[in-house]
Design a binder for these strands. Structure first.
Length: 570
RNA sequence: GGCUAGGUAGCUCAGUUGGUUAGAGCACAUGACUCAUAAUCAUGGGGUCGGGGGUUCGAGUCCCCCCCUCGCCA
């Protein structure tokens, strides 16, 4: 039994996420966690909400609520959705937790002691009316290049020119609309990542089995331009972790907070403290401190490609720079983007399917299966309603669901709702066992390698093997001349349902539970030995014929949904 | 403009360190079966592997140039 620490990139708090966010981190992380648990390993699977920063403040203001109250409510919403998708976090934390506040301040102090922090004086746009500094994106004005009057401080949406807030003509605050803006001097802490360049490069070079997507993005940032740049880790905001040194105010940093990207990854660790404080676990350090038992932990992070630089460079700089024996990530699984019907999912324009809407249309398993079997691993992937309908109907309803139906209904009709007795395994059964043996080992190999699509394809092939067996052994024909042999065949088929429940659980946990319930078993043990696994349900064991496991998506529904989600979300 | 990743059957994708007739699923066609959610199983048609050069006995797989898509950075 091995120990696996798994974290999913933590979703931002400002709204409900779309399906792309789900498939890029939380869902594959859940798949992996469920698989490892199924194999009997010890797993700690953590996720949280990322709550700090200006977007949260603005979203709260728009909702007319204090930011902490807004975050608490949105946390509940996201937690509920995560539950809806059956994400099996051991704990779903919050980056605004007290634990994270303390740990973030601790890391900053350690970094400062080790010479990893520098203080830099900068000029930044200040809004007198709002009484605060404005991030580049929150200054708008007329583009000096093309004259577009809604250009943002970082870039003009019209001509795409990169801008500096000071370039804008008639700049105004996005928050209040005030034009009473001025450049003011402000001081910030920078994380001296550049000091870590060699160490990071060596570390990344040593990771030969990481996805190319992960290492290529990391190397690009390491070598781009002047090389890895130092990064500001403080902001002039009210909402965040207050900048402190050793528990006391940090001279010159009064009223400032840490940048959201500094405290967010630290939440991975703090979340395990929350997990303990919530009474769900006893010892978080044995997962995170290599001097306290975490030496044998395998740590895997899941994330979308936009998060890779922070996880390959910034956070490791924090860990290395602390000079303390924190557990470093062993494998970074990154994903490309999921596009929606020829374009991008867009939170701002309400284009595509959002997580709450998805759950209101169909049960979680439908989405889990489609998203995971089409995970954007090697390149961006595309969601279309046609593809979704066809894949789900074919794979889940026809191949798997119908298999369960035909087996249970056939048995009920010929032998009653008990596992039939008599007969022995012959060549057909040996062939089935041999194929399953090969395929299940392949499935394990893909899962161990965190190969999501290939795992899905192999699982599907395992389901197909059941249909092939039934088709070639044809118990409905055998029954007419040799009912005892038909009984043996039917017994094998019923056992396949339990076996498939075990194997399928990481992908489709609810359907797996239904399958297990229908064969009235609770034996979730992994099939190390296939022949033995097909004998778990003995003759005489009762079962119930289940309702349709997966209903089909109709053409009418598809057309309706296509129209509904093309436009704008209210 | 620079950099990354891609461009393989109608669609979605696999293709290990270059090696025999380029694979899978879906879709399509034909056949089998009739236990089952008009489900299943079998067989078959279909690709000059973005384009052009080059290295090699041999390249989807290596090198160079060009075209297109996505993203990041200027």
């Amino acid at each position: 039994m091995a120990r696996h620490l798994i974290t999913s990139a933590i979703p931002y708090i400002n709204g409900i996420k779309h399906l792309g966010n789900l498939v890029g981190s939380q869902l594959p992380a859940d798949l992996y966690a469920r698989y490892l648990r199924g194999r009997g390993h010890e797993v700690l699977f953590l996720c949280a909400t990322d709550e700090h920063g200006t977007p949260a403040e603005l979203a709260a203001a728009k909702a007319g609520k204090p930011v902490d109250e807004f975050c608490r409510e949105m946390y509940e919403v996201q937690a509920k959705i995560a539950e809806g998708f059956r994400l099996s976090f051991d704990h779903f934390g919050r980056s605004s937790s007290l634990q994270n506040r303390h740990l973030t301040q601790h890391f900053a102090s350690q970094l400062a002691k080790n010479g990893m922090i520098s203080e830099v004086t900068e000029q930044q746009m200040y809004s007198v009316a709002d009484g605060r500094f404005l991030p580049d994106r929150y200054v708008e004005g007329t583009c000096p290049n093309c004259g577009y009057d809604n250009a943002r401080g970082d870039q003009c949406d019209n001509c795409t020119k990169q801008l500096d807030p000071a370039d804008l003509i008639n700049p105004r605050s996005v928050i209040s609309g005030s034009t009473e803006l001025e450049m003011r001097e402000t001081r910030h802490l920078h994380l001296r990542q550049s000091q870590m360049k060699e160490k990071l490069a060596d570390w990344i070079d040593s990771k030969k089995d990481w996805p190319i997507l992960t290492t290529s993005i990391a190397k690009k940032w390491l070598n781009d331009g002047d090389g890895l740049a130092d990064r500001g880790i403080t902001r002039d905001l009210a909402w965040g972790v207050p900048v402190q040194y050793e528990g006391a105010p940090w001279s010159g940093m009064e009223g400032k907070v840490f940048y959201v990207w500094f405290d967010a990854p630290i939440e991975y660790i703090a979340c395990s403290q929350e997990w303990v404080d919530a009474g769900k676990g006893a010892d978080w350090e044995r997962w995170w401190r290599t001097d306290k038992g975490a030496e044998d932990v395998t740590y895997t992070q899941f994330m979308g490609k936009d998060n890779v630089p922070f996880h390959t460079l910034s956070f490791p700089s924090t860990i290395f720079g602390s000079g303390e024996p924190w557990k470093l990530v062993d494998y970074i699984k990154s994903f490309n983007y999921l596009n929606y019907d020829g374009g991008q999912f867009s939170t701002s324009r309400g284009r595509g399917v959002f997580q709450d809407q998805a759950l209101s249309l169909l049960p979680a398993d439908y989405w889990r299966w489609w998203l995971l079997s089409h995970a954007p691993e090697s390149s961006d992937a595309e969601f279309t309603w046609e593809n979704f309908q066809v894949s789900v109907n074919k794979d889940l309803a026809d191949v798997l669901g119908n298999l369960v139906s035909r087996v249970t209904k056939f048995c009920r009709a010929k032998f009653g709702e008990v596992v039939p007795e008599g007969g022995v395994f012959g060549p057909q059964e040996e062939k089935l066992i041999a194929e399953l043996e090969t395929r299940i080992r392949a499935y394990e190999g893909f899962m161990d390698a965190r190969e999501v699509r290939k795992s899905a394809a192999e699982l599907r092939a395992i389901w197909v093997a059941g249909n092939e067996y039934l088709q070639s052994s044809a118990p409905w024909t055998v029954f007419k001349t040799d009912p005892v042999q038909a009984a043996a065949q039917t017994r094998v088929a019923l056992n396949l349902i339990r076996l498939y429940a075990v194997l399928s659980r990481p992908f489709i946990p609810d359907a797996a539970a239904s399958m297990m319930a229908s064969v009235q078993s609770g034996d979730w043990s992994w099939p190390e030995d296939v022949a033995a696994a097909l004998n778990v349900l003995p003759a005489g064991h009762g079962f119930t014929t289940p309702e349709v496991l997966f209903r089909k998506i109709t053409d009418e529904e598809r057309v309706d949904w296509q129209a509904r989600f093309a436009g704008t979300r209210d």
